[in-house]
């Protein structure tokens, strides 16, 4: 049901049946390492190419989520998945492996919450009993597509991001128990004129602000209604900018505002972190494996996840276009309030 301008309210809230994550070594060595289901130390994941490696991670996350849900592939009515590569090859080709009905999505690094929002809407509407939502990214596939060859020596500015290697998957369905998905606020594309692909935090912050602001207006909720409001990958540069912009709009989020890109790596002990993590998998693996369990454990009651995406391509960046950005927000609530 639509409420306000951009928000969907789910009348019979779909539930999180299971979550799964498969990540690379660097993510496994980070502060959240013990939370992830599968940590693969081989960056090629036993495959021949980086693209095959990312696809393998996606398939591992799919299978793990289905197994943890106590289901079989055949029980999944629909898969909604996305990634960062051209023509969504990680999601599309892994759909060949699972063979289930499939919808591909792309909102760059905001794809995780786009997939979750769509999956929840379809379950809520009764179009499916179980939907698998998944996203993936790989540091090396992203490097070679958006930046330089992986072995090329280039010095990056401190505003750069480190793309997360991993895949996150979640089974959403009609169930009696489990975390409820209550609202989704679909973002509009915001472009405030940031041109450098090395400044994604600053580019994406206004999109996150627009979606968070709209979410509060549409639902009538306040920041204090959430135990945590977490953005996808604004990281150490973009996150404080977003917090400041929100306070200018009258929303004080201090103490309850975090960012998945900040949480996933420790810049003090890990090299090559720059401003923090990014990539479609960043928001997904941190949310699915680190944050949602806190709702299950009863530490928190409500959480708003705002995945942020920079919708640039390597061609648009070379043609000096500014970076259009988007953010999608999904509200997760503990099984019983």
């Amino acid at each position: 049901m639509k409420i306000g301008q951009q928000t969907w309210q789910f009348a019979s809230p779909p539930r999180i049946v299971s979550t799964a994550s498969a990540v690379g070594e660097k993510e496994g060595q980070g502060p959240l390492g013990i939370d992830f289901d599968l940590v693969v130390s081989d960056p090629y994941v036993g495959q021949k190419t980086w693209e095959l490696a990312e696809r393998k991670l996606m398939e591992m996350a799919h299978d793990k989520a289905i197994t943890k849900a106590g289901l079989e592939r055949g029980n999944i009515d629909l898969v909604v998945a996305g990634d960062l590569l051209c023509q969504n090859i990680s999601a599309n080709f892994s759909a060949r492996t699972h063979g289930r009905p499939y919808l591909g999505v792309f909102s760059a690094c905001a794809s995780s919450m786009e997939a979750v929002a769509l999956a929840a809407a379809l379950v809520d509407a009764g179009q499916a009993d179980y939907v698998l939502a998944a996203v993936s990214s790989h540091n090396s596939t992203a490097e070679r597509m958006f930046r330089f060859p992986t072995e090329y020596g280039a010095q990056k500015p401190p505003t750069a991001h480190s793309t997360v290697t991993g895949a996150g998957a979640v089974v959403i369905g009609k169930a009696q128990n489990g975390i409820r998905i209550t609202y989704a606020t679909i973002g509009n594309v915001v472009d405030l004129g940031v041109q450098s692909p090395w400044e994604m935090g600053a580019a994406m912050a206004p999109a996150a602000v627009a979606t968070i602001d709209q979410h509060f207006r549409d639902t009538g909720r306040q920041p204090a209604d959430y135990d945590l409001i977490v953005t996808g990958d604004l990281a150490r540069v973009g996150h404080p900018i977003a917090e400041e912009l929100l306070s200018q709009k009258g929303w004080n989020l201090s103490g309850r505002f975090a960012d998945c890109g900040n949480l996933i790596y420790d810049p003090k002990t890990q090299s090559e972190v720059f401003s923090g993590g990014s990539g479609a998998a960043c928001c997904a693996v941190v949310t699915f494996s680190h944050l949602l369990p806190k709702l299950v454990a009863g530490d928190w009651k409500r959480m708003l996840v705002v995945a942020t995406g920079a919708l640039l391509s390597s061609v648009s960046a070379q043609q000096n276009e500014t970076v259009p950005c988007i953010a999608h927000a999904v509200a997760f609530e503990a099984a019983v309030t």
Partner: peptide
């Protein structure tokens, strides 16, 4: 944004 993004050293 001026001053809100770290510059290259």
């Amino acid at each position: 944004l001026k001053g809100r993004q770290p510059s290259r050293p």
